[in-house]
């Protein structure tokens, strides 16, 4: 009996393999595109001539995007990511500016005591940029920061570019939901115990970080972007952990603002840092706190942003 030719035997499995590859690519690309669109909406990367907010979790939770838009009468792009360090924030500002070369109305740049501390916030904050790895600004940064195989996996699969935080943001972008939904209550005794044990992130001023910031502010001055260095409040107890270093950071921020005509330092700490009920932990505001701080922020920045409605009355 003649055996079946190998080509005939492999025809069916080859077809099944093609079906599997096609199904994978179709779903991966289609869902990936949907998620990317949702993420861009969430970050406001689709917003033209918006007031751009960049920062890390302080800004994510501390600024109510909808309220700020209503108060300023302008679109707001809340392009803030948990764990974003100074270089990430600068990259985000440049990313938005690259997408909208003539559309940067103002940049509200989240700052805090740890702005110039080089380590300790996030070891892999680059991973939050994977969905935008095709961008000519973001791509090279990822190629440099990410382990090779990690990077290549995400070149193959668009879905692999998302973690829970990004997936949540993409879904919220489609739903138009920017609410601060994080629960919890600041516990001063827990912070006191952490401080007593030395188990907290210490403030330091890294020269490289300072130079990076200066270069970015020079660039923004040259390009005519108004930059508002916004100090989103943290608790007074947290501010008091390393008061001398905190004062040095504040002085540095004020010096940078003074050295650039387009830069203003906006200190939002008072009076909110004393309102413990507005915080979920030593660092982050809850929904109620974020509304109060946002209203305060809008009052302080409206006169500095071209086209913003006057809400100081």
């Amino acid at each position: 009996m003649a055996s079946t030719p190998i080509i005939t035997r492999l025809k069916r499995p080859a077809l099944l393999l093609l079906v599997a590859i096609f199904a994978f690519l179709a779903v991966d690309r289609a869902v990936g595109a949907l998620l990317r669109e949702g993420l861009d909406r969430y970050f406001g990367l689709d917003q033209l001539e918006a007031v751009l907010l960049v920062g890390h979790s302080h800004v994510v939770l501390g600024v109510d995007k909808n309220l700020l838009e209503r108060e300023l009468g302008l679109p707001v792009a809340n392009y803030a990511r948990a764990g974003a360090q100074l270089d990430d924030r600068i990259l985000m500002a440049r990313h938005y500016a690259r997408l909208h070369p003539d559309g940067v109305r103002a940049i509200v740049f989240g700052v805090d005591n740890h702005l110039f501390t080089a380590s300790g916030l996030s070891a892999n904050s680059y991973s939050q940029f994977y969905p935008h790895m095709g961008d000519p600004l973001v791509g090279p940064m990822l190629r440099e920061s990410a382990p090779g195989w990690d990077y290549r996996q995400r070149q193959i699969s668009h879905l692999a570019r998302y973690d829970d935080v990004l997936l949540n943001a993409a879904i919220r972008g489609w739903m138009g939901n920017w609410n601060n939904a994080v629960g919890g209550q600041f516990k001063p005794d827990v912070l006191a115990a952490e401080v007593a044990s030395g188990d907290f992130r210490h403030i330091s001023i890294d020269d490289t970080q300072v130079a990076q910031m200066e270069a970015f502010l020079d660039e923004s001055e040259q390009k005519g972007w108004p930059v508002l260095l916004a100090f989103i409040p943290t608790t007074a107890q947290w501010q008091a952990v390393e008061p001398e270093k905190a004062a040095q950071v504040e002085a540095l921020l004020r010096r940078l603002a003074d050295a650039h005509a387009n830069v203003t330092f906006i200190d939002l700490r008072e009076p909110w840092q004393h309102r413990e009920e507005f915080f979920i932990d030593p660092l982050h505001l809850n929904a109620e706190g974020s509304r109060e701080v946002t209203a305060d922020l809008s009052r302080k920045i409206a006169p500095l942003i071209p086209g913003a409605q006057d809400n100081t009355q």
């Binding site: 079906v19 590859i21 199904a23 998302y162």
Partner: peptide, 16 residues
């Protein structure tokens, strides 16, 4: 064919 597509969906699930 549906089983092959199902496995592809699981790979998508693993990726995401």
């Amino acid at each position: 064919a549906m089983r092959a597509a199902g496995s592809a969906m699981l790979v998508c699930g693993i990726a995401l």
